[in-house]
């Protein structure tokens, strides 16, 4: 019940600050556009004047892509047929869990790093907005909150990285020999398959858990206005372990909603034929609605978690 109450509270609070979500969405879009422009030029130069352009407008020309891939450098290497719909989401999931993001071209790694840092900056604004008695988004208030918490959030981010990568490395050293053994000694591919699935699930859960844990650390910083960052981590830990069902329940409720949103997006995207300007515009619109909903759910998570924290404290 606590979960539902605070989830709806969070929903309501986020609803009141839709302009903030819109602002965050525009930042995401503009940031992404910085790389989309060179990618557009690459594609245009590659097939713009060729007959391939017509095929690519109608569908996907696999032969062209093979040529493009074989010559691709930097950003271009990220263009694959699997960026469509479900592929985009699944690629990111694999990149996250297996940390394949580090195999990406440097420009993508740098961009992701900057975006995470930027988001750490924005988190201060988001939480300080939700902290108000009557949450209302103003640019001035948002910027003030973002600025005042950035340093502490940044330190938290670095600590979370150290912890995450340490845990991942430890788990990796435990899982790797088991997997190697399973791959080398199995007479069927079924055993290693399930092991990979299990270990991936564990790692994903740990990532999510840490996100939740550090969310509460950030919430505590905003609510309690103390300077010592380090103390918030054990406190967040103890809060989560004191109320595991409520904290995890709320987190996974919103996580579940985001999975449903993703599935709806994937299904709808498959139905839109992108062979005309109208189709492309519709698909683009749907895509932006999806990204907006992802950002909205992230804000909703913050808001609900803040409410839950206040409720349980």
């Amino acid at each position: 019940m606590k979960i539902i109450i605070n989830f709806f509270k969070g929903l309501k609070t986020t609803g009141k600050t839709t302009r903030m979500v819109l602002f965050l969405f525009i930042i995401n879009l503009l940031f992404s556009m910085l790389l989309a422009i060179p990618m557009y030029n690459s594609l245009k130069n590659s097939f713009g004047h060729s007959e391939v352009g017509e095929k690519m407008a109608e569908g996907f020309d696999y032969l062209w892509w093979q040529e493009f891939r074989d010559e691709a450098q930097g950003l271009e290497t990220t263009f694959t047929p699997s960026i469509i719909g479900k592929g985009a989401v699944l690629n990111n999931l694999v990149d996250l869990i297996q940390l394949r993001i580090f195999d990406s071209p440097p420009i993508i790694i740098i961009f992701v790093f900057f975006y995470i840092t930027l988001h750490t900056f924005l988190a201060g604004g988001i939480l300080s907005t939700f902290y108000q008695d009557n949450p209302k988004f103003t640019m001035k208030g948002f910027a003030k909150g973002a600025g005042s918490y950035f340093f502490r959030f940044f330190i938290l981010m670095l600590i979370s990285w150290v912890m995450l990568f340490t845990i991942t490395a430890v788990l990796g050293s435990v899982f790797s020999p088991i997997l190697d053994k399973a791959f080398d000694n199995s007479q069927t591919e079924v055993t290693p398959f399930y092991l990979v699935l299990l270990f991936s699930g564990i790692i994903f859960f740990i990532f999510l858990f840490f996100q939740m844990l550090f969310d509460y650390a950030r919430i505590k910083i905003v609510l309690e206005e103390r300077r010592n960052v380090l103390i918030f981590i054990p406190e967040a830990f103890s809060f989560v372990f004191k109320f595991p069902f409520s904290t995890l329940g709320l987190y996974f409720l919103i996580f579940l909603i985001s999975i449903v949103a993703t599935l709806v997006y994937i299904l709808l995207k498959d139905f839109i034929p992108q062979s005309s300007y109208l189709g492309v515009s519709l698909a683009f619109f749907l895509q932006q609605v999806f990204i907006f909903s992802v950002i909205w759910l992230r804000c909703c998570l913050y808001s609900s978690q803040m409410n839950l924290y206040r409720y349980l404290r």
Partner: peptide, 20 residues
């Protein structure tokens, strides 16, 4: 590029799991 942009937007948002 619009499809690719969607992937990139999602990537950026997805990896904020490592940040704020």
């Amino acid at each position: 590029v619009s499809n690719w942009l969607g992937w990139l937007q999602h990537t950026l948002e997805f990896f904020t799991i490592f940040g704020g």
